[in-house]
Design a protein around this nucleic acid. Structure first.
Lengths: 135, 135
DNA sequence: TCTTGACTTAGAGTGCGCTCGAAGCCGTAG
DNA sequence: CTACGGCTTCGAGCGCACTCTAAGTCAAGA
């Protein structure tokens, strides 16, 4: 598979794939006789997992550490598990944060909705009541 | 309230507070007779709300638009509500993504745990069984 | 044969969100 | 009076994660 094919399949640009290889996030890809990268489809599952780490906010330097451990075989299973467990906790905490934020947004949206409602009422009644406090 | 007091209370640095004022995310603060910013405590709730937007990944340019609308009174209630509704949808989608990632992490962690378990068993049995496929 | 287009490399540039430094002013404690 | 800490402004610098450019190579199709 050429780099542009892999790019299409994994949703990263060819630029980004080369960048990831350069920094060590992707293993050095085999080159064909004209020097072009020729990827094995098995790289896709690794890229997909990296995408999960990225989505969940893991910085590249941590992904690099994980990648290095993953290249060292069975001896690093427990270290990798611990990394992922710590990361999972951070992600869970972040999700909890986001859910709290969502509740705040819900409240704010509702209060705008109610304010708009009142404004429509005022208009319909053509009443000259004093302005209400903003929220 | 001086900038360092506000910084302590809201968790942003004085540098960041000045930066936010400079770009228009915070209203221009009153200065005392020696030119130093003197904040009213009411700024705290606005900063807290900005923090919610930031936590949920809203870029500063969008916060700036929201801030501009919020400075324009009642006429922009519906526009602000629509902004927040769209943002809320993005956040909900992101939370769903994160939850999918958490399930992947759970699976990965479990498989490391099982592999470690098997390695301990193998050691205890002192058996020279062939290596298993890595996951 | 010539053109086209995708690939290669090293390295520069971009956008975001801060973060810091320099130089100078102000008010209070000693 | 002086020293000190904290404030001011403006602008430069930083860390991250790409993103793009330039110059060149290569293989296949007209």
């Amino acid at each position: 598979m050429k780099i542009s094919d892999l790019a299409k399949r994994c949703g990263l640009s060819a630029h980004t794939l080369r960048y990831y290889e350069r920094i060590g996030l992707l293993p050095y890809a085999d080159r064909d006789r004209s020097g072009q990268r020729d990827y094995d489809a098995s790289i896709l599952s690794w890229i997909e997992f990296l995408g999960r780490l990225k989505t969940t906010g893991m910085p590249i330097r941590d992904m690099l550490l994980y990648a290095k451990l993953a290249g060292s075989g069975k001896a690093t299973f427990s270290e990798r598990r611990e990394m992922l467990e710590e990361h999972r906790e951070r992600v869970r905490a972040h999700v909890a944060d986001l859910e709290a934020c969502l509740r705040v947004l819900d409240g704010k949206i509702a209060s705008y909705g109610e304010a708009e409602e009142r404004m429509r009422d005022d208009k319909r009644n053509n009443a000259n009541t004093p302005a209400r406090a903003r929220t």
